[in-house]
Design a protein around this nucleic acid. Structure first.
Lengths: 331, 331
DNA sequence: ATCCACAGGTCAAAGGTCAC
DNA sequence: AGTGACCTTTGACCTGTGGA
């Protein structure tokens, strides 16, 4: 039994080991394993975004990890799959965290952008005074921030390249915010979207009834879908993740696609498992019904985009924070 | 040739295999085999003592092993049966180990209990100074500890559930200690039990001759039985195991009973084999004679128990370590 | 002989551990 | 804290053997 030494596909060291589907030394195996299993974030690459040369890979977590992904190391079996209840509970905590930020904080910087919220270690907030007045602009600003703060806690986001993180968050935070607002309205038997203080999510009514139509679709469509489905909190939480864990986005890098589609598998399996447990043989039907919410979110996003285009055309200028513009322009 | 897939009775995986008397997948077969054949200890169950769900069984050695036993996997054919000489030599080493601890060590913690000695990874001892004074209390404390340290090295103990381990050791360590002390006295032609320094195994003489009687029985009964039988070291060692490998104990769990009765079979076969080899056609008679020692141990235990009850009644208070009390209360 | 069911063995890959 | 050399455990696959 002769062990033939080959080169580690990650770091080029000589090795006879084969792990996670590739020729790879024990050190790289353990490195990859740890970061996926322990869900520990990566230190960013100091040499910009280029890939470090193999002999210095050990010094750069970021490039080493992405080399692992690019080399085809099997990711999914390593992703922790906690019991469904624990997973849902964790999602619930994240949702509360989002709502907590939305209702009680305001950033020191009044014009943050997506990149800053994603990559700065500490975005500074102050607690809002109870009497502090929130208007349309500040509500959509806080909605964006609170949502991005939560999104960046998901491994497929924080393990991705900075460019991919931007694509993922920019293209989804509006949808996620709307989705959460819709579920809050649905839970309290309201038929229209509103901000936590009850104010309207649209800044003004168009005089023309033609434009009233689109406003009402924005306010009601998601909620009435929830009513149709009689969706519950657990289903909402499990769907929420699937909204932004979407590998079909254009311009994602190769490793970004691997990350997103792998985690999407994991999350959709969780939803499927939930449906099977709760609805037994009707589980698959329920699963399909729930997934149909995602296309409704798509229509909602279209409406939102159109609404902003129309209001621009009408010259109605109501201040849109630049971070929100980043989200709208990408729709 | 149709292989019908069934569910593994241990882990529920689909399989067509049948091993060790049950429908069971190859993985569970190898798992069970290894732990019995290699006599490798089990990592304790993290979820308390409940049985892990089948799909996570592979992650918990303890629950998986006990599921194997409970499912009726045949245990005995897998138990290693080394040549009799090797087995006896191994027992002899364990006995020396016990005597070594008894004579030369003292634990850092002066009031250990049975559970701690059984389940803690490392019970800390210090070497005793030759001049260190041992009194009655410290001798019975060390006897208990040394005996339990040896008992926990037997597979039917360390493979058992924690609750069964407690029952097994608590109910036997006093008997085992007495049995060993008796053989040491017999070997050096003494007629009464004593601690290694020659001091009396009972803390004081009752003045009344009625109570002197019981003290003398405790001191002499076992030794005179050994003299009657002209027992030798090998026989002593083989009997020693049978004293604490006793499936008749109340409250043993189902798997505890399986373990203890199976190992008792193995050990009594070894004694029978020894007798047959050494005494040829008189072997069975010798075997029966030797087994009668076990009932003598029972009488001895009764005397010890009564002695302690009497001394309590007389208000003679001489400190009994709590670990020893655990052993007396169960007699 | 030759099937085949089950016992037992092998080894690559996965999963820990621990000193640095 | 993170790393990686080294160790243990697992289970898919293989070989051996005895009965029909």
């Amino acid at each position: 039994m002769v062990h033939v030494a080959r080169n580690c596909v990650i770091c080029s060291r000589l090795t006879s080991d084969f792990s996670y589907g590739v020729d790879c030394c024990n050190a790289c195996k353990m490195f990859f394993r740890r970061h996926v299993v322990k869900e520990s974030p990566l230190k960013p690459c100091l040499s910009g975004n280029e890939v470090c040369p193999p002999d210095t890979l050990a010094g750069c977590q970021f490039c080493r990890f992405h080399k692992c992904l690019q080399s085809g190391m099997t990711l999914e079996p390593l992703i922790p799959k906690p019991p469904l209840n624990d997973f849902i509970e964790n999602l619930s905590k994240l949702d509360s965290y989002r709502y907590q930020i939305l209702c009680n904080y305001y950033p020191i910087d009044p014009d943050l952008n997506v990149a800053t919220v994603l990559f700065f270690k500490k975005v500074m907030y102050t607690e809002r005074e109870p009497e502090s007045q929130m208007n349309f602009t500040s509500w959509i600003y806080m909605s964006a921030l609170a949502t991005i703060e939560v999104m960046k806690k998901f491994p497929f986001v924080y393990l991705a390249k900075p460019g991919d993180q931007l694509i993922l968050t920019r293209s989804s935070f509006m949808n996620v915010s709307s989705f959460c607002a819709a579920f809050r309205a649905y839970s309290s038997n309201q038929e229209v979207l509103s901000f936590p203080d009850g104010s309207d999510v649209l800044p003004y009514e168009f005089v023309s009834s033609r434009y009233e139509e689109i406003g009402n679709r924005i306010r009601r469509r998601l909620i009435s879908k929830f009513v149709d489905l009689k969706i519950n909190k657990d289903e909402f939480l499990l769907l929420l993740v699937l909204i932004f864990c979407n590998p079909a986005l254009p311009n994602l890098s190769e490793t970004g696609q691997i990350l997103v589609s792998t985690y999407q598998n994991v999350y959709s399996s969780a939803l499927f498992q939930y449906c099977s447990q709760k609805y037994e043989k009707c589980g698959p039907i329920r699963y399909t019904e729930l997934l149909s919410v995602i296309s409704v979110i798509g229509k909602h996003a279209e409406d939102v985009n159109n609404y902003f285009v129309i209001s621009q055309l009408h010259g109605i200028d109501c201040f849109i924070p630049s971070i929100v513009e980043e989200g709208i322009n990408l729709l």
